[in-house]
């Protein structure tokens, strides 16, 4: 196994291991994995800190606020801190720790960053509407065969397939 950044796990082995992590999560906690929920917690916390009355009166933020604990004291926030640590460990192990803007040679770094910002905003928005992202809705949903998760998964991949050809110049 080379440590120059070129090594990747066999995708079926990677998928099997990811499946075991997901299965363990259900076995232990009764819920699946997630990602966007942790960012939601940080949005709720930030808004609550800057404008507490606004947050309490909002029909959306107020669902995630409690007098007992901070929205940051949340399962998904700790899980995502783990994701960062685990990914860092993997990057260090395989020699992939490097600060850079990865982009197609056909576009500039600036174009890449602008499209990443807009893409992130759309993803965040859509994940709120669908009550979860690729992790919490689609992947965890497939494990328990939920209609919501599988329908959202088909919508994400179908739409991403069409739009990726629309924005082909960004990638190849």
């Amino acid at each position: 196994m080379k440590r120059d950044g070129s090594f990747y796990l066999n995708p079926y082995l990677g998928g099997f291991l990811l499946g075991l992590v997901l299965l363990s999560t259900y076995y232990i906690t009764g819920r699946g994995l997630g990602a966007s929920g942790a960012i939601k917690s940080s949005v709720v916390t930030t808004v609550h800190a800057v404008a507490p009355d606004h947050a309490k009166q909002s029909a959306y933020y107020s669902q995630f606020l409690s007098d007992k604990k901070s929205p940051m004291n949340n399962w998904l926030v700790f899980e995502v801190l783990g994701v960062l640590a685990g990914a860092f460990f993997s990057g260090a192990l395989w020699g992939r720790l490097k600060t850079k803007v990865e982009h197609s040679p056909k576009i500039t770094g600036r174009t890449r960053l602008i499209s990443a910002l807009i893409g992130g905003a759309l993803f965040g928005f859509g994940a709120q509407l669908a009550r979860g992202c690729t992790s919490g809705a689609a992947l965890s949903g497939m494990a328990v065969l939920s209609s919501s998760g599988i329908i959202t998964m088909l919508a994400i991949f179908g739409s991403a397939y069409i739009f990726s050809w629309t924005f082909k110049r960004l990638w190849i």
Partner: peptide, 19 residues
């Protein structure tokens, strides 16, 4: 579930990542 997924797909194609 459907509209949220379609919006996420557009974000995926522009951003290249999911959360």
């Amino acid at each position: 579930a459907i509209i949220g997924g379609l919006i996420m797909g557009a974000g995926f194609a522009l951003g290249g990542f999911c959360p």
